[in-house]
Design a protein around this nucleic acid. Sequence first.
DNA 1: AACGGTTCGGAATACGCTTTCCCAAATCGT
DNA 2: ACGATTTGGGAAAGCGTATTCCGAACCGTT
Lengths: 343, 343
Amino acid sequence: MTSPDLPANPPTLHDVAREAGVSLATASRSLNGSARTVREPYREKVLAAAARLGYTPNLSAQAVAKGSTMTVALLVADIADPYFSSIAAGVIRAADDVGLVVTMAATERDTRRELELVRAMRGQRPRVLILAGSRVEGDENELALRAELEAFQSTGGRVTLISQNTLPFETVLLDNFEGARALAASLVELGYRRFAAISGVASLRTARDRLTGFRAGLADHGIDLSDDDVAVTAFTRDGGYAGAEQLIPRITDFDLVFAVNDVMAVGAMSALRDAGIAPGVEVGVAGYDDIPTVRDVTPALTTVRIPLEEVGARALALAMGTGEQSAPIATEVILRASTPRRG
Amino acid sequence: MTSPDLPANPPTLHDVAREAGVSLATASRSLNGSARTVREPYREKVLAAAARLGYTPNLSAQAVAKGSTMTVALLVADIADPYFSSIAAGVIRAADDVGLVVTMAATERDTRRELELVRAMRGQRPRVLILAGSRVEGDENELALRAELEAFQSTGGRVTLISQNTLPFETVLLDNFEGARALAASLVELGYRRFAAISGVASLRTARDRLTGFRAGLADHGIDLSDDDVAVTAFTRDGGYAGAEQLIPRITDFDLVFAVNDVMAVGAMSALRDAGIAPGVEVGVAGYDDIPTVRDVTPALTTVRIPLEEVGARALALAMGTGEQSAPIATEVILRASTPRRG
DNA sequence: AACGGTTCGGAATACGCTTTCCCAAATCGT
DNA sequence: ACGATTTGGGAAAGCGTATTCCGAACCGTT
């Protein structure tokens, strides 16, 4: 009389215990092979029963009982952006290695939303909360965010930031300043002299560090980069496109355009081409990050490599207390066809 | 005498109730504004107390009590691959809109691992399980995977597959056959006549459908694509590179190379260039998917657009019973510079 | 053979929350 | 104005697990 496949409930530990003819406690102990031992006649029975029933422990129940979960929460600005998806891949891989599962959400570069997401994620009682994505200084939600993170921390949670050493939490530090400085040095060595840049707003820490680092590198060689030669736009491909458009009227004044990240550089190259200017030939282009795409664009893009997956892995290690705190991530200048040696 | 900030426990509903001077039940009812109403003196007190304490409901406990979670599990082959990260972005956005949180893992294209991950994910008791990633037919783990998914389904879970109509579950169907066929028609119309292809193994459903569709499109115009002219390799950028290398010795026999997905096409273009052959000039190149990268490579790649984020969103909608089952995803041929009109 | 000490299964309790169930109080009908 | 009905707070019973505590069975001494 019963409907053939009405949604039965998943087997519980109780079912396993009954099936095996033992108590709940014995069943539990047999399955998570923990502290106390279970003697052989029993243990085997439980394992068999569990297999027979296709038992999978309810992680929520486990979390309630043990008072802690096995999850890490990851917040990124934009999942489809290769910068973040590479980092996410690193986090997920590392998490997986230690038996943690990661839940992910996208802030869409909106700090209001980021705050909401942190609140929502806290409901999961994750062991770790990782925030990636450039933070704006002096944002109206900064205080609330900080308070939320501190509350999380004070209840035993670990929080790790990626790159954005804006907030007082453990951070995977990318030395954006030094990376950009080294890039500038390499470019000068190649013969470039007249520079322009495309950057994000100065309150964006990452953008600012890269720009000032680049400036410092130029200054080391007595070259100046005036504010007039810096286009300020959004931190996206389309931002890079728009930034290049601003520079194009005076493009003959420059022999190199530095975009503070690769997606912007790619957008800039596109704008240049659309304006009939050959990137890498009439004007050099350089970016930052070394996302996978940039070795496949033409000309291949000169950039500063960040080992993105490693950054993700490191973020988790840091939170778990596994990683060496201080060791900064090593970056490396990668010279490609977009910056040929110049006369 | 107590250490200043030893990890206190997060406030519980019990704390809130006490702080507000009401019972547990009243506190619970006030907070999730459900069925029964709570009168004003009480309700306000509870809300205030919750705010004061910074209370965030423990989702695990809620899940145990209600017998259901608000999570969706997403399994993809590779998170850093733009194809999957775009789909993931769509899933996450859609999930977020309906208050679901998504937990994500990567199968690394290993079916053994995929099976393990499904098992692990089941522990979360997600409402929905979404599998993306090309499945190999006749895989040794296929039976076990299928059994696992069916078990999940029989306990009320919803499973949705993306693209891979290999298993008997709800699927977001991409008409790979028709898309490739339309592409072939467009290319013939542009004047191409001598075709080569780079594909994955035939047991990979997606690869096979695209290849047979492409063949069908050519056949419509009386053109044949021999097996000798199809390089079979891995479904990755490097696979595409290797595939092109196979074809290069005979490259003058062809006027167009079709790679069954964009990352392979990008790899192929790279191989061609490395061999001194100008893609788009000496030989046309076409791909499939329209990942973001391909409009920025040079020449920009001709491809078949799949609205990837929409696919992700649709997968979730399907599982939630919100989407129109049958409506197949609309694909569209995008002609770009990699396939200029010929002759 | 008797005794203290160890091992380990089972009953019971706890975890944080939702949801019945009970019953006093408030509301309504006439 | 009084009984019938609705309203809504509180106690308590779960949800599926882990774990403490108890006591019976087992061990090695002497």
